[in-house]
C-alpha cells in the first residue's frame, strides 16, 4: 500500500479556558490517499472543523495539538511555524464555507490567486497573473480575463467559491481541505462546486478532506467517511460500507433524521437531547446519554474497534445486528 498523503494518529486539540481545559478533538485518527476523498461528517461542535484547522496549523491562539499529523510522511507537528507556513498554500490548501470572508475585498480576484503563485512558485507578477487567468478557466469561470479583474463583491457566491478553489489548487497541493464548501450556496450551485472539486481531484491526484454535515454530499462524493461525535470518532468506514451497513447508533439515528426525497417515513427518527458540554463531558461513551441502546458498560469509553474488515465503530454494542435478533 502506498504512503497516505495525510495521516492523523490520535490527534487531540486542547484550549485553556477560564473553566479549565477544553478538548474539542480527542484522539482522532484517519488517513487519506492520493486522489481520494475522505469525508468528516458530524453536527456542530463535533470537532470536525477544529480537526481541519489543526491539520492546516491554523488553530486560534492557545490551541495545543497532540498526537501526530503526517503530510506525505513528514510530521507537521515537528515543524517550525515558518516551515508550516511554507507548506500552506503550496502543499496543502483549504477552502472555507464562506468565500467572502476568505477573500480580501481590496484586491481583485485575479491578484489574490496570482499572489499565491508568486509566493509558492516564485513566478513573476505577469506570469502569475496569466497563470491565475488560466486557473479561472480551469474552474470554469466564464470570461476568466474579465473576472480576474473583478473584485470579490462583484462576484456571486458560487463564483467566489470557484475563485477560492482556483486559488487552493493553483499550486497543485497534495492535500485539499474543504470545510463545508457549499453550505452557504444554493443547491444547484452546490452541485456544480462539488462536481468541480471531484474533477480537479481526478486531474491532479490531490487528496481531499471534505468536512460536511450533509450525509447526501458524503454519499455522492466521498470514498471514505469518518463520523465524529463530541470530539471523537464514532465510526470509520468506506463510504459505501457506512451507508450499506452502519454500525454506530449515532450513525443510525443521523441517517434516520434526514427526510427522504421520495417521502415514505411518517416520522423522522430523532435523537433526543442535545450534544454534551465539552467542558464537562459524560464519562465513557459520549453518545450514551442520548443512545437508546446504552447499557451499563457504556460508562467506559469503547475503543474504535473493527466490526468488519476496514469498518470500525466505537460502540460496545456493535455489531448492532445482535440487537435486532433480541428485538425479534
Amino acid at each position: 500500500m502506498s504512503t497516505p498523503v495525510l495521516d492523523l494518529a490520535r490527534v487531540t486539540v486542547e484550549f485553556p479556558t477560564d473553566r479549565g481545559r477544553l478538548r474539542p478533538v480527542d484522539g482522532v485518527s484517519f488517513s487519506v490517499e492520493a486522489g481520494k476523498t475522505l469525508a468528516v461528517v458530524g453536527e456542530s461542535g463535533c470537532g470536525k472543523s477544529v480537526t481541519a484547522l489543526a491539520i492546516m496549523g491554523l488553530l486560534p491562539q492557545g490551541g495545543e495539538v497532540g498526537g501526530g499529523i503526517r503530510l506525505g510522511g513528514e510530521e507537521l507537528l515537528a515543524l517550525t511555524p515558518d516551515q508550516r507556513r511554507a507548506r500552506r498554500g503550496g502543499e496543502m490548501a483549504m477552502v472555507f464555507q464562506e468565500p467572502m470572508t476568505s477573500l480580501n475585498p481590496a484586491f481583485t480576484a485575479g491578484e489574490q490567486v496570482a499572489e499565491a503563485l508568486r509566493l509558492h512558485q516564485g513566478l513573476s507578477p505577469d506570469a502569475a497573473f496569466a497563470k491565475a487567468i488560466e486557473m479561472f478557466a480551469r474552474v470554469r469561470i466564464p470570461e476568466p480575463e474579465r473576472r480576474a479583474r473583478s473584485y470579490p463583491h462583484q462576484l456571486s457566491g458560487g463564483m467566489r467559491q470557484r475563485v477560492m478553489i482556483a486559488m487552493a489548487l493553483a499550486c497543485r497541493p497534495r492535500l485539499l481541505i474543504a470545510d463545508e464548501p457549499t453550505t452557504a450556496l444554493d443547491v444547484t450551485v452546490q452541485a456544480q462546486i462539488l462536481a468541480l472539486i471531484d474533477e480537479m481531484k481526478r486531474e491532479t491526484g490531490t487528496a481531499v478532506v471534505l468536512i460536511t454535515h450533509d450525509l447526501g454530499v458524503v454519499r455522492d462524493h466521498a470514498d471514505d467517511v469518518v463520523v465524529m461525535y463530541a470530539g471523537r470518532v464514532a465510526e470509520r468506514a468506506r463510504a459505501a460500507d457506512l451507508f450499506a451497513n452502519p454500525q454506530h447508533p449515532y450513525t443510525i439515528g443521523l441517517l434516520g433524521a434526514v427526510p427522504r426525497l421520495e417521502g415514505g417515513a411518517a416520522r423522522l427518527a430523532s435523537i433526543e437531547g442535545t450534544v454534551p458540554d465539552l467542558m464537562n463531558p459524560p464519562p465513557g461513551c459520549r453518545f450514551a446519554p442520548r443512545c437508546p441502546f446504552a447499557i451499563a458498560r457504556c460508562a467506559e469509553q469503547p475503543p474504535l474497534a473493527e466490526v468488519t474488515p476496514g469498518h470500525q465503530a466505537a460502540c460496545w454494542r456493535a455489531p448492532l445486528d445482535t440487537l435486532l435478533e433480541q428485538a425479534a
Partner: peptide
C-alpha cells in the same frame, strides 16, 4: 430518489432506535 443502500436492516434498526 435516495439510494436505499441500508435496506431492510437499516429500516429495522431505525425503527428499533425510535
Amino acid at each position: 430518489q435516495d439510494v436505499d443502500t441500508g435496506g431492510e436492516r437499516l429500516r429495522r434498526l431505525q425503527a428499533y432506535f425510535t
